[in-house]
Design a protein around this nucleic acid. Structure first.
Lengths: 243, 243
DNA sequence: CGGCGTGTTGATTATGGTCAAGTTCTGTGG
DNA sequence: CCACAGAACTTGACCATAATCAACACGCCG
């Protein structure tokens, strides 16, 4: 009653089961929430993190999506990752306290911010938060290592299939349709992320469409045969999947 | 004087400037050392970590070298990383408490072991250790992400050059010759790590030899023109290096 | 010395990159 | 509402890189 009625906080956020507090106790979540600042909405193309700057906070996507990307010396763009709501970005900054990639909004984006200083202070007293940070970093490392193997061992279609299946699962966890969604990133972004050219991504999508596995209309995609996509993907079912 | 004369401990280990204690205070190092168990020597091919097992400890290479690897469904082997003395292995196990790859000795190997339980308890009271664990995980993540981009954007020779230059630098940090060393891994392991075939690795090495950049005799290698290798590598100098 | 695992080299092929031409989509202004 | 411009995307023709298949050389073990 005394509390400010329906103020947004981690405790009543729709993402709490996916986001940082997922494995924290109610008490720890409450303390964490006190350190979370909610940013205003950014528009498409805005840079939330800039490569080279000091890492002074962790950023979590609250709505919309983003890409973690940068540019090589010769002007080629690379895309390290795409971030959906509830996902923490910029963890690699822990390496030396500076960001190495940009974080760019792919559509209107809302986000939360947690200062590193406050995070470190909270880690002193919250064992659950300590464990969760290790888990989060470990998971990012595991995911990235798996993707590195995938890029080096799987062909273009397999990689695109993996990408779609992975995206589908992540959307499903967020209670969005796993079969009918909009790609917030361009073909070029997908290509840069998978180590392909945009032409190859386009051709692979065309092949899936002709096979009757997907329906594609611009950036709207419908997975008609997710089983078939899984079948040739790396993550699951494909002949090259991990044991 | 009262201490057990020349007993090996993190404080007097030759690797202390490279290993986990690198950024810890003397006091923190002493406490950490109390939790470190030194393993007996393993012979080539021995498995220190087995995929699928519970992650109950962190392992650090003390001497020799190891590969973090596994097998895909179709029997293809992949190699996630090579580990030199002072490097911590198996960090991705923090993701869900289980290892996802094997750790295999490439030559006679000595190692240190730190129980996860004791590590977590020490993190409660040692802020430097907390920070160091985040730094370590962040660095692994950054390295792996960079390598993922490299595998997807750089050609065979560039990747091999990067590999050699990176190895050279890591050996140099350990006060070993950065130009004249022995490859403890087979061509096949290198290929699997770089996403190539062993034939391509062999050919690329041959090209470097013909260009007068390296001398190769079986697994002994001498870098005659590290500058040229750097020049075509991803990490540094190459036209595709990060800004 | 002989045999096998490891590595090198060659010939051929296939996958995806490059270059180029067109098509669709989106947003803007008349 | 439609016309237009520019970006995003698709499709095709050709080519280059590295995979595949195969034969052979080397070196280390007994």
């Amino acid at each position: 009653m005394g509390t400010k009625n329906t103020e947004l906080s981690c405790g009543n956020c729709a993402l709490s089961r996916i986001c940082l507090p997922a494995n924290l106790s109610a008490r720890e979540t409450r303390i964490l929430a006190g350190a979370v600042e909610r940013g205003r909405e950014l528009c498409t193309g805005a840079r939330l993190i800039r490569a080279g700057t000091r890492m002074d906070a962790l950023y979590v996507v609250r709505s919309g999506s983003a890409k973690s990307c940068g540019v090589l010396k010769d002007g080629e763009e690379y895309v390290r990752a795409f971030n959906l709501p509830g996902e923490v970005a910029g963890l690699e900054g822990f390496a030396n306290g500076h960001h190495t990639s940009d974080l760019v909004a792919l559509e209107p984006l809302r986000y939360c911010r947690i200062s590193i200083g406050r995070l470190e202070r909270m880690m002193e007293t919250l064992p659950g938060l300590r464990r969760e940070m290790l888990r989060l970093l470990g998971q990012s490392l595991e995911d990235t290592q798996r993707m590195r193997i995938e890029v080096s061992m799987v062909d273009a279609r397999g990689r695109l299939a993996s990408f779609l299946v992975d995206l589908s699962r992540r959307l499903e966890r967020r209670n969005l349709s796993p079969t009918h969604f909009r790609l917030s990133m361009s073909r070029r972004d997908i290509a840069r992320h998978l180590g392909l050219t945009l032409e190859t991504v386009s051709r692979a999508l065309g092949a899936f469409r002709r096979a009757g596995w997907v329906e594609v209309k611009a950036r709207h995609i419908k997975l008609l045969r997710p089983d078939m996509l899984s079948g040739i993907s790396f993550q699951n079912g494909g002949s090259r999947a991990l044991l």
